[in-house]
Design a protein around this nucleic acid. Sequence first.
RNA 1: GGGCGAUUGGCGCAGCUGGUAGCGCGCUUCCUUCACACGGAAGAGGUCGUGGGUUCAAGUCCCGCAUCGCCCACCA
Length: 857
Amino acid sequence: MAEIPDKPVLEGLEAKWDEKWDAAGTYRFDRAAAAASGRPGVFSVDTPPPTASGSLHIGHVFSYTHTDVKVRFERMRGKSVFYPMGWDDNGLPTERRVQNYYGVRCDPSLPHDPDFTPPFEGDTKSTKAADQVPISRRNFIELCERLTVEDEKHFESLWRDLGLSVDWTQTYRTISDETIRTSQLAFLRGIERGEAYQALAPTLWDVDFRSAIAQAELEDRDQPAAYHRLAFHKSDGSGDVHIETTRPELLAACVALVAHPDDERYQPLFGTTVRTPLFDVEVPVLPHPLAQQDKGSGIAMICTFGDVTDIIWWRELDLPNRTIIGRDGRVLADPPEALATDAARTAYAEIAGKTVFSAKKRMVELLAESGELVGEPKPFTHAVKFFEKGDRPLEIVSTRQWYIRNGARDEQLRERLIELGRQIQWHPDFMRVRYENWVNGLTGDWLVSRQRFFGVPIPVWYGLDDAGQRDYSRVLTPDAASLPIDPTADAPASYTEAQRGRPGGFEAETDVLDTWATSSLTPQLAGGWQRDDDLWQLVAPFDLRPQGQDIIRTWLFSTLLRSALEDDRAPWTDAAISGFIVDPDRKKMSKSKGNVVTPADILAKHGSDAVRYWAASSRLGTDAAFDPQNPTQIKIGRRLAIKVLNAAKFVLTFPVPDEARITEPLDASMLAALDRVIAQATTALEGYDHARALEVTESFFWTFCDDYLEMVKERAYDPADPGQASAALALRTALSTLLRLLAPVLVFAAEEAWSWFAEGSVHEAGWPQSSGVPGDAAVLEAAGEALIVVRRAKTEAKVSQKTPVSRLVLGAPGPVLTALKAAENDLRAVGRVRSIEFTEAPTTQVVVIDLDTPGEV
RNA sequence: GGGCGAUUGGCGCAGCUGGUAGCGCGCUUCCUUCACACGGAAGAGGUCGUGGGUUCAAGUCCCGCAUCGCCCACCA
């Protein structure tokens, strides 16, 4: 047992205990125990893998603490805890960070350079694309791995500081070979079952990242725009039709006009054609119910493709595809065939090769010159779809992509996903609604292919026909045993590398999988799916998925989907959704603000227990305010942690005789009250209400220190008092119980104090049970009230609380008097009262108090 | 346009299945060092956003409204 320091401090506890826990394997998953108890004896967590290329902020500390509190509770209750940690090092954030960190960009056409060293290392403001050195895909990926490994070290260090009880032998990286294998295997099984398929379709496209984007990655941003009124010419020469558009640059891609079927203004035009301004292309005027009569002029031009509505019209009205925007976001060099006249081609040449922005500007000039722009453009603001990590509005281009069915076009699957969502216990429950909203709002299957470099390669090749053309109907897949594969480096079975790109040979799919297509498999990745079946049986389906509310539509939904497709069950029984951290002014905390305080700074300054206390004080699903300049809650947590150390030190000065028994009513009363606290905290933690558990425990702890401890310490000191042993035992019992109740939150202070008198870790000690001492909680309560009135009398007399009282008459209602009399000796001790009398009164009050020092009441 | 939350003393929050408002911080006053000055004690401070309704009784249930936040939406 450790020696109790003269003056206990919080400083240094984090490093000390992290090392000891690590050495003792305190948080290691005990597989033998788990195997013995089976799945019911295990508590498994599908931990969110932080984005390695990002930085951890106070919000991470917040939500991971919530999980850790629950995990520690379950561990103390005797569960074999499976609490892994993953690193999400896939995806665009990593690529982008590598580009800026090393000043490079990936050019897949370049050969590998084994001696390559990056131009520089370190975070810079940002490097312009033009300044970045082009490097091969392999060199690029090597840098991605190098940087993510570094990031992961920093992350782990922070998590250890915070005291997360993660099993650091159970980690995974989303870019590891094992992850790639699992991800590819799951995808191939999807192909076999027909859930994964490829299709040529209009696709939301980010022109900067040059990749397709899924619905779940969209976000709306308000953008300035302007209505441009354009004159289309009726083919019969009877005049013009005016439409309004925000995207005049797409005029060459116009394939029809559309108005509402009931719109009397345009009904005569249905079935006729008009000619486009400038380009003189004949397009039909068609009715469709999606056209809104009150918007613009009530008649719209359909282009391939200006927005998602265009896609619907194009599809439902069976229109031609007249694409003019390329994957680089510039107007294609060659005009569509429909542009037949020289004038049209000349006009097109004016915008060919220009960005959307420049093309729009030029088109407006040209239309103004031709007189077909009617009036001035009318500026306004509207929402435009962006890739959530992108900088420019998304375009829509027709591309061939891979998809996974998600219920958008399959009523049965959708119903099943809703049903599985309802089988999960959500904390808080209303978060389920967000999930259901998302599922019911899906407009298309999940687009999983990305035209990127760093990620899980889509594990297929395509057969080439005799002309060397790719035959998309001949998808060549690898054997499960050969995974992981890189189709650009490995050849399919029954082919040789020499046949790559040759007629009759094969060609690789070069796309990688969406990062969520891998992240959606975190239970499988951590739990040994198709790798370690015994482990999988012990941990899956998992108990808990903790995560932020912002990724319900992505991570939560996609994980549930994969589990439904693979096992037809929910991947977890419970989902705990943490809220956001907001600034004191209630705005969502933004990283871009100047005074960024890193979590490491905060932990170092206030102590991890203090920060954990702050986090644990907020309930799941509730946003919490955080003011780095004035972290009130953290300071309170710090005070509590220090108090725990000091109270423990004090309690431990009273040795407990072997034969000690609870004999005093006040001691029994305190323990009975503590039993209630145990029951309340346990119920709260079972229901994921860590804030409630902490509140009741903390509240009792202060009563324990301020009232009980003060009342019994004289008795505990006094060997002549027959109640001494009872006091010592009660104090020790309460200390042991309180430390265990507080251990999930104040992990370091509780462990430190525990080490002063007990063997082993408090975090492996059993969760406290009722002491079963038959006590009347009313005694402590009544004594507490009496204490207050006596203290008040002394305060009002402006004397020290230690001032002796020669005579005290306490008044109280009958039942309270009975309870007070049971604690009479302790009351006399704490009040320094020589003589005490009791009398009936409507409320607890001081009737007479005679102080030994001058002063009167 | 649809939905989900929130609205309780200066600030941050509790108030579970309805019975005349609690906690912490801050504030005021007082007490020092025999566990804790990174301390202790006492006190002041609220007609629970708003308008209706149900009930003997409503922060607590029902309906409408307002403000704030978030999610979703086919946003020419």
